[in-house]
Design a protein around this nucleic acid. Structure first.
Lengths: 341, 341
DNA sequence: TCCTCCCTTTTACGCGTGTAAAGATATGCG
DNA sequence: CGCATATCTTTACACGCGTAAAAGGGAGGA
């Protein structure tokens, strides 16, 4: 059945004989018109092909009902998971989410921000690239729209709400676990891409020094800061293992993707057996439990992070609280002991 | 430095003393105005905070420059990778991409389609849920917008362009490899979520029968068709292994995520050693090379798929070729031999 | 200096919908 | 059946910008 295509509300009004203002109210809320009228309209719609134009709809409203999200990489399951949760909660709140990925590029991140500004979104959630992010862009965004930083804060952009994981708590938890079960861990840091890289490393060092132990941090030559964490960790550790370094004890990786790469390298060097090198990660990547050996890690509370982020923007949006002191919500992680450590 | 916020082009015009039509032309193409004028404007912009409204901009044009994308799950790295490539190529073509994930839900898929329709996008790329997709929604989309199906075709929606992988070729290639190197494979199918599930299984059966061998297909009770492929495969295979079934020979999995789950189960049963069970996958999941043992698989040509999908919509958009016969482009895969088979 | 040519300004309308105001009509009740 | 009230129609303006047409202004050449 080929329904007749209607292009505007005006046209709809003409063809079904109901005034445009009434139609407008109907599409915003069918119950705002008399039941008999609503029936007449919905009956007519059976035969017709019409959808109100989303943007024309918002053009003349103060709130657009749109939320922008910027993430560094859609192909990183951590961000994909956060995004998924954000979309779910945003839908519950009646927001439409528009996501832009920066593909790891500061320029694309700026463009994404520009895009969201020009869309006049009600608010924006940004998981920033980190150190590479262009401060002017983020600052401009902050000045113009309700905004919340997610996952990684930005040094130099302190007056913005932030939601993320308590890296100090999480690293201490997994670190203490490793210590408790016998091995002072070496730390495999991620490429210095964002603030998490620093704060996790700092938490590790603090813990070690607190215990009177020597912190040992491995960091490869950051060859053009790469988001290919698995490959990065694999190559770095392979280099060490080949020279007999770090072949025993425990290795605490700044995130699971690194751990997966390290695990692979260790396995190839036959280091992961009984009494071999213990490896632990951070994040509870969806595939971590399927690794061999299954990866011991800490799980970030992604739903809580997503929910909090939405709550904070929503507050800013309704409260117009541009001048309130910035809020900072971090969540604790959960220790997940598997086989690798 | 706090730049003064300007809310409309009208306002901009008033404050910098340049007529709105000229500003309009400037923002569309700075070279369409005299160089001295362009300078005057860009100089003024240094002090001011203004971005033309994206949607108002498109409201009065025939083409909106927007492309819609619908994927089943942002947290499936295959779709995330496809999306990433689509975004890259779309940017090259000057399109702005708006992505909606259906989170595996037919209802959300329909809503996403509705959303894209109401946005008046120039075209839409849909990686459908598959059998669960609501045909009316997809059909409505097809009638109203240039559209291309990606990854999985929809039975019953045949007059739509399709871009994907040649499952027959890919399954035969990996299947023949397994046979050539010694083992007639058993097939672990994915939950019947989309057409790929069927066509890969069909390709397997065809190959086996052609070789005069008995096809053996494993399929768990599809407990509410699940997208948790790894867990699904793990549980199904664990059940078999526990009863001593399929513990040797070769297992061909319909995709890598299944293979990862199966691999994990096999490893726990000590089946993956020398002369043990051989396991192969399909897709070359980004983490497959980091599995232990590293997963033998076939790689889909994701960039080619993304590029072709964009080419097809672009053709439809410019050609208004709504009545041309539907085109169907499938790409060959590349055999990637690692350790698992 | 005058006259083109090019770019700009002015003016006006259009995109599809929200929304306010005033008048017309339908609904429900006594 | 008449009236008060809820709802609808009509009319008009607004949102932010594209764009066409006509008129204005400046730079360059003769």
């Amino acid at each position: 059945m080929r329904k007749a295509k209607i292009h505007s509300m005006e046209e709809l009004s003409a063809t079904i004989g109901i005034s445009r203002p009434t139609l407008s109210r109907y599409f915003q809320n069918p119950e705002s018109v008399r039941a008999s009228t609503a029936r007449k309209i919905s009956d007519a719609m059976e035969t017709l092909d019409y959808v109100p134009n989303f943007f024309a709809t918002r053009l003349n409203r103060k709130a657009t009902g749109m939320l922008g999200v910027v993430i560094p990489h859609a192909t990183d399951l951590f961000f994909a998971s956060v995004l998924e949760q954000i979309e779910i909660f945003a839908a519950e709140l009646g927001y439409t989410v528009f996501t832009q990925s920066s593909h790891g590029s500061p320029e694309l991140e700026s463009r994404a921000i520009e895009q969201l500004l020009s869309m006049n979104a009600d608010g924006v959630l940004v998981a920033p690239l980190g150190g590479q992010s262009r401060l002017e862009s983020l600052d401009r965004l902050r000045r113009n729209l309700p905004m919340v930083l997610v996952d990684s804060p930005i040094p130099g952009l302190d007056d913005v709400d932030f939601v993320g994981t308590d890296n100090r708590q999480s690293i201490r938890m997994i670190g203490e676990y490793l210590l408790r079960t016998g091995h002072p861990p070496t730390f495999l840091g991620m490429p210095r891409l964002n603030a998490n890289a620093d704060s996790r490393e700092a938490a590790y060092i603090e813990l070690m020094e607190e215990k009177g132990l020597e912190p040992v941090v491995i960091r490869g030559r950051s060859v053009g800061a790469s988001w290919h964490f698995e490959a990065y960790a694999h190559d770095v550790m392979e280099g060490h293992f080949a020279q007999g370094r770090h072949v025993s004890g425990a290795l605490l990786c700044a995130n699971d993707r690194l751990a997966i790469g390290a695990l692979r390298a260790a396995t190839r060097f036959g280091l992961t057996g009984e009494n071999g090198l213990r490896i632990a990660g951070h994040d509870d990547h969806p595939l971590s439990r399927f690794m061999t050996p299954a990866l011991t890690t800490v799980a970030q509370d992604i739903p809580a992070i997503a929910r909090a982020a939405l709550r904070l923007v929503a507050d800013q949006i309704k409260g117009d609280s541009h001048d309130l002191p910035p809020r900072r919500e971090t969540f604790a992680t959960r220790l997940i002991i598997r086989e690798s450590a």
